[in-house]
Computed example of a mutant assay.
Amino acid sequence: MAEPKWDDLRVFLAVSRSESLSRAGKALRLDPATVGRRISRLEQALEVTLFMKSPQGYALTQAGARLVARAEAVESAILSAQDDATGGGEEMTGQIRVGAPDGCANYLLPQVCAAICEDHPGLEVQIVALPRVFNLSKREADMAITVSPPTAGRLTSQKLTDYHLHLMASRAYLEKSPPLDTLADLEKHPIIGYIADLIFDAELDYLSEIGGPRTSFASNSVSVQLNWARIGAGLVIGHDFALPFAPELTRVLATEFSLKRSFYLVRHADDHNISRLRLFAQELGTRVRHEMARLEGRT
């Protein structure tokens, strides 16, 4: 059995993460036929079958799944060596992709990441805003901000900060609507919330905290929900840190109802030796906590 070359392992990881020759080729800037030949060469060298072709794409065999951990360890070692060769130390350069829920991605991360890049001009930050859990094992991002710590996989997590939520509505809406003196009065008002079957984490099921009222307007996007509230469509459970960006809104029933949730920074366990990712995570954590305090009016 021949020892696999890194270049072939790199192609193998791309296919395992994308489950497609064409998507892997796009990521590697290779044509799909070349990707297919490289996989065949690796299988011949290892004398095993790494993928099973199905209508859904390329699925790992048991042998392929065992190879993933080995290939990722090689990948991490090479990335760490490249990091050292390009400066390492205390300077951050290169590209870092951060995945985050869209509320965090829209109202918290832009100013935080802009400040980090101002201090580190050689750094390029990409923010991927998606209303779902990121798959770091497939390298969808270098790190992800989540609302729950991971419970499986070769991942590490650290708590970034707490954040708070309240019922909110536009001042124009409140002026024309029935009185809101207690939570029982909510039944007289249209409610804005998540699409129930698209809630990807139980921590986001805010409406269950007030008895699960029926929504008149629903979206899987925090930004859409907030914009509905801004134009006076109804009441929403919104992030306090988003209020500075929505001056039309005000908290309602704040003494009767509030929620506290947390953001966590999740990273792949194999990335702990990559200095630019480690330094970025440290600076991101510090700046996120300071910015959260500022936006929520605690500083």
Rank of each mutant, 00 (worst) to 15 (best):
I210D: 04
L259N: 04
A141P: 02
A81G: 04
A229T: 15
I237G: 03
Q56V: 14
Q44P: 09
A218Q: 07
F12W: 10
Q95S: 14
W228G: 08
G64T: 11
I127C: 06
H166Y: 13
R70D: 15
R294V: 09
K188T: 06
P244F: 06
C113T: 15
L160V: 07
L186E: 03
N227W: 05
T151V: 14
Y163R: 04
R230W: 01
E3K: 13
T299P: 02
S258M: 13
R66A: 08
A14H: 03
Q82R: 14
N220P: 09
W228S: 05
R171C: 01
G36W: 00
E209G: 11
T286P: 00
F51K: 07
H164E: 07
G103D: 13
R154T: 11
P179M: 09
V128N: 00
M52N: 12
A184Q: 04
A196R: 12
L167F: 08
L109N: 05
P213D: 01
V133Q: 14
R214I: 05
F263W: 10
C117P: 02
D102G: 15
Q158K: 05
G57A: 04
E19G: 00
A269D: 14
V266D: 01
E124M: 12
A65R: 08
R41D: 11
L30S: 04
R278I: 12
G211F: 04
K53A: 12
V68W: 04
G232V: 01
D7C: 06
A27T: 12
I199S: 07
S208K: 07
E203K: 09
L50Q: 05
K26P: 05
R23G: 02
